[in-house]
Amino acid sequence: MSVDVGRPREAPAAGPPAGRQRPRRRQPYGERAGFGYLFLSPWVAGALLLTVGPMAYSLYLSFTEYDLFTAPEWIGLGNYRRMFTEDDRFLTSVWVTVKYVVISTPLKLAAALAVALLLNRASRAQSFYRAAFYAPSLLGASVAVALVWRVIFDNGGPVSQVTSAFGWETGGWTTDPQYALMAIVLLAVWQFGAPMVIFLAGLKQIPSTLYDAAAVDGAGWWRTFVSVTVPMLSPVILFNLVLETINAFQAFTSAFIVSGGRGGPSDSTLFYTLYLYQRGFVDFQMGYASAMAWLLVVAIAIVTAILFRTSRSWVFYAGDGR
């Protein structure tokens, strides 16, 4: 064995479990255990100080009234009770967010899959198109694009001009409670590039022999899509579905900018995270906002669990023997 250059410093506090005081044994981890924690130490510090600790603290805060300046005051389940019994805006924000998740996620994935299918053919132009369709995913999260959205969907803006040319008088989407959320949904759908790229990678993994066999059996385009593409792609569909659903629950910038930070008109774009922000960082009701944050964690965990549970019946893993 070599003599190591530069003796490693002592492994950080979260080192190997105690009770290993017998003369140092090489097995099962050898002398590398210390090195592992040495390299991991920034991450461990971050996980403890910025994730685990804060999670525990916000759980505690969720049972208190806290305004940042005076000490938290224990009120038990008070925050949670208020949410569901007294706070209509909270219930509105839940409803708005559920609508947004349920509408935007399937639309975004459908667009992503459709374009991935379109691009999935042998052509030298493919990588150009792939990159170009991906571009909005990088731009869309910005304040600048959200501003563009606000003006494009405003009264007299390009969108209302186009729709009225087709005889559909919408006026300004962003100022109409009926349409404001749809404008933000469209901004999410516009960023279908990232899941599209993932779908495309998945499509390339499907063995061409399956398509040959389907063609020999006389299957048409739709039949092949339903019986070959979708089952073979289903793990990727699940992956994108989970990821995009989780993302959608946390949408913030688009709603904030399009509604000018207020979630209007008449709370029609009051996203959960936007309301959480207002409660926590505008009204400084940090206990209430913490309770909302924990509820969001629980909601996301439940929805993810449900998606995985139902996936057993529709996700097909090749080599599963089914």
Binding site: L50, T51, G53, P54, S58, A289, A293, W294
Partner: peptide, 17 residues
């Protein structure tokens, strides 16, 4: 697991820190 964790749940404690 932290990949799926919404940042909002650590936002307020981090702010207080």
């Amino acid at each position: 697991a932290t990949l799926m964790l919404p940042t909002h749940v650590v936002l307020i404690p981090q702010y207080t820190i």
